[in-house]
Structure formats: structure tokens, C-alpha cells
Simulated assay, not measured.
Amino acid sequence: MSTSETKTTAYSYSVEYILDRSHFEETFDESVVINTSPKRYLKSVAFLVAGFLMTITELSPYVAYFFIGLGAVEALQVRFNRAWWLMRQLISKSANNPVNLTIDDNGIHSKSTYIDHHLAWDDVYRIAETSQGFLLTTQLTKHYVSKRCLDDTCSDFIRQKMN
């Protein structure tokens, strides 16, 4: 190797953590922006109005009651957004199971019994640091990585990817 060549070492960090309630709470709190607009209830109002309008038609009353019930459930989902989301996560198959997280030069790889997901750095177009983790934005969705499972070197590595 000549003196003008530099040798770069590949970075790799691996950790295992449990997808428990505290992890899901942190993920929601750090990644979801709560919309406080009354427009959030438009879908539930539409279901309720459609259901009540169906009660005065020749349709089966069961269809009308279904739409009224759907409107009520949708309104509850909007009102209790965090609790609703947490409940769905906690009853999922992946809840309370270990996840192996690997962060390296290629991207972020999450692997558990139920998921095997690789997020390449090239697919990430925005990285935002929050008080408790990193929010990685791709073209389709957002991903959250908690700092509590990262060491300082790994956090610095992700910060370098921000630039």
C-alpha cells in the first residue's frame, strides 16, 4: 500500500433489545406528530352520517348499525390515538420479543422472529435527532431508532450520516 492510500475500516454495531411497552411508548412519543385539528374527525362523522341516512332507507338495519358503529370506533381511535396505537402494538406478534439491531456502513438491519427489515442509508433522505433517538425518513415512511440501545460511538456514526 502506498502512502497516498488510506485504509478505511467498516463500522458495525449490533445490539439486542426487547420490544416492550416502554419502547413502544417512546417510539410513539418521539415519532408521531399529533394533529389537533377538528378535521381529524371527518371520517368518523362521514361514517355516522352515512349510517343514520341508511336507517331511513330500505337497506338492512344491520348495515346502518355497522356504519354507525364504525363511525364511533373511528372517533375513539382519533380521540385516544396514543392508547389505541400502543394497544395495537402490544397485541401484535412482535411485542415482548427480542430484536437484533445491526447498524453498519450499509444501513440499519432489524431482525426478530417476525420481521427481517433492512433500511439502506441510500433510502434515507432525512435524519432528525430527537431527545431520545433518531427519526429516519424515507420516501414512504418514518423509522425510529432509540438511543437507549445505542452506545455513544453508534450515535456519533448516525449523526455523521445526517450530514
Rank of each mutant, 00 (worst) to 15 (best):
L53M: 11
L53G: 07
K93W: 08
V99Q: 01
G107C: 00
R159V: 11
Y62G: 07
A95F: 00
F47Q: 00
C154L: 05
S155T: 08
M87K: 15
L53K: 07
G69F: 06
S60V: 05
F47K: 00
A46W: 00
L119C: 15
A75C: 09
S112H: 08
F66S: 03
Q160C: 13
R148V: 10
T57M: 02
D123N: 14
D116W: 10
H143Y: 10
N96L: 01
I103L: 03
A83P: 11
A46C: 08
A120P: 15
L70H: 04
Y65M: 07
V145L: 05
I115C: 12
T141P: 04
L76H: 05
K111A: 08
I158W: 04
I127P: 07
Y144N: 07
R159F: 12
G133Y: 03
F134E: 02
D105I: 02
T113L: 14
D156N: 14
T141M: 09
M87L: 15
S112F: 05
Q132N: 14
A72T: 05
L135V: 11
L59S: 06
P61F: 03
Q160F: 13
R79F: 12
L76Q: 07
S155Y: 12
I127R: 11
E74L: 06
G107H: 00
H118N: 15
T55G: 04
A120H: 13
A72S: 10
N81T: 11
L76V: 12
L53D: 06
A75R: 00
C149K: 11
F67S: 05
N96D: 00
G133N: 06
L101A: 03
V73L: 06
A75T: 04
R82E: 05
N96T: 01
V99C: 03
V99A: 03
T141I: 09
V145Q: 04
T141Q: 09
H118G: 15
C154A: 07
P61S: 03
R79Q: 10
Q160W: 13
L135W: 09
W121L: 14
K93N: 10
I158Y: 03
L70M: 09
T57V: 01
H109A: 14
